[in-house]
């Protein structure tokens, strides 16, 4: 297992840096070219959401990314490495984006409205009076649509978004097992 960690300030300009880094590490890990686009977009969405949340709640706090290539042998992290903690299988590329903005507040709606759906938000955007962006729900919906496996864990201490994709060799194995080739 190999891990690359990246910590960024809550600035929109750094979201691009995170996307580029994630794509580079994924390419090196052996993710297929078609999946790289999905990773780039999903990581961008997760980081955009985190940056916006931090700018609202805690602009001085950093946002952390972990890029985990679980294709190789276990590294110095050993059995307690992130792949084991996450319960993810080997042969996958995993991205973990962690922020410190409270996602659940007592008596107030969560920043992201995690229970909401994208279409309700789109309808609201089209009919209300502003010229702003879509609800963060849409970004989460995009992540769910792109990642092969995803978990989103909102809490008072922040949100952890875990996304993973199979590496190219594993994709081939899965295709063969299902007779998809």
């Amino acid at each position: 297992m190999a891990v690359v960690q990246l910590t960024i300030s809550a600035l929109p300009a750094h979201v691009r840096t995170a996307r580029l880094m994630a794509t580079a590490v994924a390419r090196r890990a052996g993710v297929s070219e078609s999946t790289l686009d999905e990773i780039r977009l999903a990581v961008g969405e997760a980081c955009s959401r985190a940056v916006e949340a931090h700018r609202t709640h805690c602009p001085d706090q950093p946002i952390k990314l972990e890029l985990i290539d679980s294709s190789g042998p276990t590294g110095p992290g050993g059995p307690s490495g992130p792949d084991r903690i996450n319960g993810s299988r080997s042969g996958r590329f995993e991205v973990v984006v962690s922020d410190h903005a409270p996602a659940k507040e007592n008596g107030a709606p969560a920043f992201n409205g995690f229970e909401g759906g994208p279409h309700a938000s789109l309808g609201e955007s089209l009919t209300s009076g502003g010229f702003g962006g879509l609800s963060p729900d849409v970004g989460l919906a995009v992540i769910r649509g792109l990642a092969d496996e995803v978990s989103i864990e909102p809490s008072e201490n922040g949100t952890v978004i875990r996304m993973s994709w199979p590496l190219a060799s594993n994709e081939a194995d899965i295709s063969e097992a299902h007779g998809l080739d």
Binding site: R19, R40, L41, G44, E45, S48, S125, G132, G133, L134, V138, G139, V142
Partner: peptide
């Protein structure tokens, strides 16, 4: 590249 911010 286009993300949900751009869609918004």
């Amino acid at each position: 590249f286009l993300d949900s911010t751009g869609l918004g």
